[in-house]
């Protein structure tokens, strides 16, 4: 009998598998096809103060081993999330969510986080300072130490819930930014968000995405994400939610060996709606295969000393 439980910033998870923000909506599409209480937790769609349509379409493109999206934070706004989405979710889901918060100013991050902090179903605040598809928000905060630290510090003032800062890979060195967030009081880090990328339609001689660029996710980015989780683990002492291209139970184990306490699953949910459930079901056998009894024992296990 293996033990898959982990503890993410003081909250016990039955298993480390967490569908990632943007790939799981507010849960209801998946609750229609399986019991999502099998999840460790999940991260809701990035939520802003006011409703957003997002970017013009096309905003999805295929790529070798992955996909591009330039959705641009479409969401119904925090009031609708609190009044409609979360109550609907609570009817089918008894665990906690990571409330993914995004903004175009520090004030917006603070007000959205404060509103979501009051919800019982919210176990963690995930600060999205890494969306590559909006201008003047998201990644513009998370691409520098000062911005990431400032958002972290101000949001920490308004919530007692653990604050997990979601980092972008679109920087020269992710480590100083991870450190700056930890120093500013972050309780955890999640990484990576998508990798800035593009496709061009040779017939039209134009970018495929209306937004020109988008974020690459899927198996193609897994080794990049793994490397960054490994680097950040060496630099900080707070828990890491490792994500980026995870699509199998083996990927979960690799991520945890690199230093992740919990593991996000993103694009895999979109190509196989049952992906997160199947990964969770496959995890015990995969652990046995590698002689793992307690999953927590392998966190950071790939590091020397």
């Amino acid at each position: 009998m293996v033990n898959t439980a982990v503890n993410l910033c003081g909250v016990e998870l039955e298993n480390p598998v967490i569908p990632a923000s943007g790939a799981f909506g507010y849960g209801r599409e998946f609750a229609e096809i399986y019991d999502i209480n099998c999840l460790g937790a999940f991260a809701i769609k990035g939520t802003t103060a006011y409703p957003r349509f997002g970017n013009p379409t096309p905003r999805i493109a295929d790529a070798p081993g992955g996909m591009l999206n330039s959705v641009g934070l479409q969401n119904p706004g925090v009031e609708d999330v609190v009044n409609v989405e979360l109550p609907a979710l609570a009817k089918v889901y008894s665990k906690k969510v990571l409330a993914n918060v995004c903004g175009f100013s520090i004030g917006e991050y603070v007000s959205v986080a404060e509103r979501l902090d009051a919800e019982d179903i919210v176990g963690w605040i995930e600060l999205n300072v890494s969306c590559p598809n909006v201008h003047g928000g998201g990644m513009s905060f998370g691409a520098c130490c000062e911005g990431a630290a400032a958002v972290t510090r101000e949001v920490k003032r308004v919530t007692k819930k653990p604050v997990i800062v979601k980092l972008t890979p679109n920087v020269t060195d992710i480590v100083p930014i991870a450190r700056a967030c930890a120093d500013a009081g972050a309780d955890g880090l999640s990484l990576i968000n998508t990798v800035l990328a593009m496709r061009i339609d040779p017939a039209a001689r134009r970018p495929v995405l209306a937004n020109v660029t988008g974020g690459l996710s899927g198996g193609a980015v897994f080794p990049i994400a793994l490397r960054m989780v490994y680097q950040v683990y060496e630099a900080v002492d707070i828990p890491i939610v490792g994500m980026g291209g995870v699509s199998t139970a083996r990927d979960v184990i690799e991520m945890m060996l690199a230093g992740a306490t919990a593991v996000g699953v993103g694009a895999a949910n979109l190509t196989n709606p049952f992906a997160a459930k199947e990964i969770i079901e496959a995890l015990p056998a995969e652990m046995e295969k590698y002689g793992i009894t307690n999953l927590v024992d392998i966190i950071g296990g790939a590091h020397n000393g």
């Binding site: 943007g22 790939a23 799981f24 909506g25 599409e29 998946f30 769609k45 409703p51 349509f53 997002g54 379409t57 096309p58 905003r59 999805i60 493109a61 996909m67 999206n69 959705v71 479409q74 949910n269 979109l270 190509t271 709606p273």
Partner: peptide, 26 residues
């Protein structure tokens, strides 16, 4: 529409309607 998931999760295929944004797939 050009879609990502096809079941309403990714918000890739949204169109504007008189009732607000709607997903072509869902």
């Amino acid at each position: 529409a050009r879609m990502g998931c096809g079941f309403g999760a990714c918000m890739g295929c949204t169109v504007e309607t008189v009732n607000g944004p709607r997903r072509v797939c869902k």
